[in-house]
Amino acid sequence: MLFYGTELSSRLMLGTAQYPSPEILADAVREARAGVVTVSLRRESIGSRAGQAFWSLIRELRVPVLPNTAGCHTVKEAVTTAHMAREVFETDWIKLEVIGESDTLQPDMFALVEAARILTDDGFKVFPYMTEDLVGAERLLRAGCRVLMPWGAPIGSGRGLNNLFGLRALRAHFPDVPLVVDAGIGLPSHAAQAMELGYDAVLINTAVAQAGDPARMAAAFRLAVEAGLIARAADPMEQRDMAAPSTPVLGRAVLA
């Protein structure tokens, strides 16, 4: 699966916020063998180049960087942040977040579509953070997005995949679009589940960064994503209502 023409070295994308230290972040990225790291620009960029020291640490991880517009609430903020990110990280990839509600940090789908159109027209390759809304997804694709990133649950909530039906529907409707579950994953089993549903990648941040041992949790997520990916490729069995014994019982002595 190609993300804007690029094959990722792994299907695990890792966020870089909230780690106890940059050293632990680097350990986690290594253990995760992350295919992409995301970095939030907004808070770090108070003042012109004031976040330079941290950005250098991110670049030194030697993993493709997907900058994001975390914390943006309007189209204008998001577009400005995207331009800043392109300059700082020399990439036209942008994870587009436009938050519409402050308690759930739910994406504002209307602003998201508008910002996605402006940015794709400007040459950006947009990874939109969205709800699992089917119609919204269609609009984002029409706006030029070639990857979709629906939430599993609100950012940092660790609740897993809240709407399995919705996520399945997205997968079924857009079989050829790279789909990434972004946000809400709390446990490796959630990540495995997303991959089993046929998602192409997952993006994790809080679940690793806020674990007691982030590097070990990163390793657990690496294994879970790999397990889910392999399981999907192996064509899992369907659920049945009736028991189907794996060993024949016919002919076995029942009065032993």
């Binding site: 808070r43 003042g47 004031a50 976040g51 020291a53």
Partner: peptide
């Protein structure tokens, strides 16, 4: 705690 070296006034 902000990964920035700016001494600009508080936001």
């Amino acid at each position: 705690m902000v990964e920035s070296e700016s001494l600009a006034s508080m936001t």
